[in-house]
Simulated scan of single mutants.
Amino acid sequence: MRVVVVLVSALAVALLGAPTASAAPPAAHPGYTIVAPQLTPLVAGGKPTRVLTGVLDAAGYAVEVPAHWNGQLVMWAHGFRGNGAELTVDAPSYGLRQRFVDQGYAWAASSYDRNGYDVASGVRSTHELATAQALAAVRAYPPGPDYGTVALPAIYAGLGLAPNNPAVTTPKAQQLRAETVLDSGGVRPGADASFSYWKDFLLSLAVPGNAPTPVTGVALNPGVVATNVGHDYAPDAPVNPDVTVQRVRPADPAARNSRALTPVAQVAGKPRVPVLTLHGVGDLFVPFSMEQIYAGEVADAGRSDLLVQRAIRTTGHCEFSDAEAGKAWDDLVAWTDGGKRPAGDDVDATSGPTFGCRFSDPAAYAAAGPPSQTDTRRLFAPCPATG
């Protein structure tokens, strides 16, 4: 789930006034606790910023306004927080908080009033779980409470895979890797290594959580709106999954077909303002194919002139350098304020060995260490030098 940045005009920033006192302090929804953000004002233009925090409509918020405010507001929206009971507010990351106020922008962020998978995001098919079960000849969908202790070990064994081991040596494991690569965005640099990085996460998605959670409904189990009916799996050897896979219809078709802002809402591909995205080439938490699907929807709506997409040669989710995020922000501002549409990548042309090089930070690659959970740039070959 990507972090979202939205630029709003000064007409929409009445909330920047002083908070209004109330008879009773506002509270979170039952089961949740709001963790107040602790933010020290920054210095911008030689003067400290003004920081406002509080609770509004059962959600925590933070607002920061520079002394020399340019009259515009950045809305900073965080991504998936899991199913815990604490609601927290994030300040802009990737060095963008300082960049915003240095450039005269105010920013505001909310904790949201609930956790869970409660986002406006399209869902195209079930998790790779059903394909893995078909290849391993283990039928365990829908997953039960013993999925983690009985079904999952059998799936690993049937595929010839092992937890915490990147090796993919058996024909069935290689087929699963190939299917995952194709379904997540197609052949592209770093894809095989990215499968090894994410495989344990993908295969354990169905393991039930044990911690208490206030999250309910579709936000807790977004799989109820997913389906693999009609999906054509490839490759089809040594096992033909189109014959063996369990086809699953949406468990909640009303939620899937709703055009309302449900926890897992439809995306129409009709942006009204300029949109610039960054996406890790090897990300399988939010697969790169989401960029391709969105680009197609926007094109079908005749609004491709409002969309610019950039591929970054990383595998971790939202693994961007300050330079990559800062450049994207500056280009978005130049686009919205000056009409200069920035350059981007063709997200459907992924197969070339240098795909993702154009907007990836060479300094971040040079400084990267061996691949780890927090630094995956060395899973990719070096990009050719430019000059």
Results as ranks from 00 to 15, higher is better:
268 A>M: 14
295 A>K: 06
293 I>D: 07
272 R>Y: 09
179 E>C: 03
366 A>C: 11
210 N>I: 12
41 P>S: 09
24 A>Y: 05
58 A>R: 01
126 T>P: 05
205 L>P: 00
60 G>F: 03
92 P>R: 14
349 A>R: 10
152 L>W: 01
282 G>V: 13
202 L>G: 04
352 G>N: 06
297 E>F: 09
201 F>C: 06
261 L>Y: 06
153 P>E: 05
280 G>E: 08
292 Q>K: 06
325 A>V: 02
166 P>S: 13
171 P>W: 06
25 P>Y: 09
328 A>D: 08
63 V>T: 07
165 N>T: 15
386 T>E: 09
273 V>E: 10
351 S>W: 11
15 L>A: 06
370 P>Y: 10
320 F>S: 00
227 T>F: 11
153 P>Y: 01
53 T>A: 06
316 G>L: 02
347 V>S: 03
336 T>S: 07
346 D>E: 08
36 A>V: 15
271 P>Q: 09
129 L>S: 08
375 D>N: 10
236 D>V: 11
363 A>Q: 07
225 V>E: 00
162 A>I: 02
141 Y>K: 14
254 A>D: 14
134 A>H: 00
122 G>K: 07
53 T>V: 09
371 P>H: 09
168 V>E: 03
70 N>C: 15
141 Y>T: 14
258 S>G: 03
337 D>E: 15
354 T>N: 15
335 W>K: 05
243 V>A: 13
334 A>M: 02
